[in-house]
Amino acid sequence: MTGGAIVIWIAVIALAIHAFRARPGSHSGRHANYLILGGGAIVPTIVLTALLIYGLAPIPALLAPAPEGSLKIAVSGEQWWWRVRYETSDADAVVLANEIHLPVGEPVEFRLESPDVIHSFWIPALGGKVDMIPGRVNRLSLTPTKIGVFRGACAEYCGTSHALMSFYVRVEEKAAFDRWLMRQRATALPPSTPLAKRGQASFLANGCGACHAIRGTPADGVVGPDLTHVGSRLSIGAGILPNKPKAFVHWIARTDQAKPGVLMPAFGMLPKADIEALAVYLEGLR
């Protein structure tokens, strides 16, 4: 890719130099024809053919099922966030949102779906994008080879806040991944400080649990993201805000400003102290 970009850059610069040095006046008709035919038809056809072959070649491997026993992750694109479900061998799958962890060097199979409109699952650094189509389950298999944090995004316009529908992928060593998965499987930590306790009481009293689940508490909603370990994530609001109490306050009080068109109503009407307590509670759900 870099090589191709350099060739294009050199060609454009060479043309610019040529244009500066060319003498004014009429040019040979034959040369002009060659330029139009070559630059307008033949070269683009060759370049597009090469890019098409380059793009088609890796697709079959991405669509084929991962080897037996591979990690399977169901991801559902929803307006405008990602529901992530690790289909572990245990009866209880691990559910979270807007974040995916993967063990380095191990094949993984994503099963991609959507309950509302067409979304597209895309982690540019790891693999091609695959549409998430209501009523279908599409598959994407890949093997991450580098440790790091990669950003993913929705690559198909899906409504007002399409551009605010991102997620993070953390690729880590197998041991770190196993520890993370074990922590994600556990129920939520009970709040330890008075402020966090007030936040939990507020969460339950104000009906947040109708849409959000926090395992280990009475909150068991399935409409919105599972918040059991929301404090452990790299971001909140599907990749748009940092995981900080201040960002939680902004999200809870002015949800529709943070993400226009979002289903969750803003809770700015709650007392400021309650919102701050909620933020501390949620941020503490590591």
């Binding site: 072959i53 088609l56 070649a57 697709i59 079959p60 084929a64």
Partner: peptide, 11 residues
Amino acid sequence: GLVIFFFRSCY
């Protein structure tokens, strides 16, 4: 038509 050189199964 090029696609047939790359795709061998229904995935």
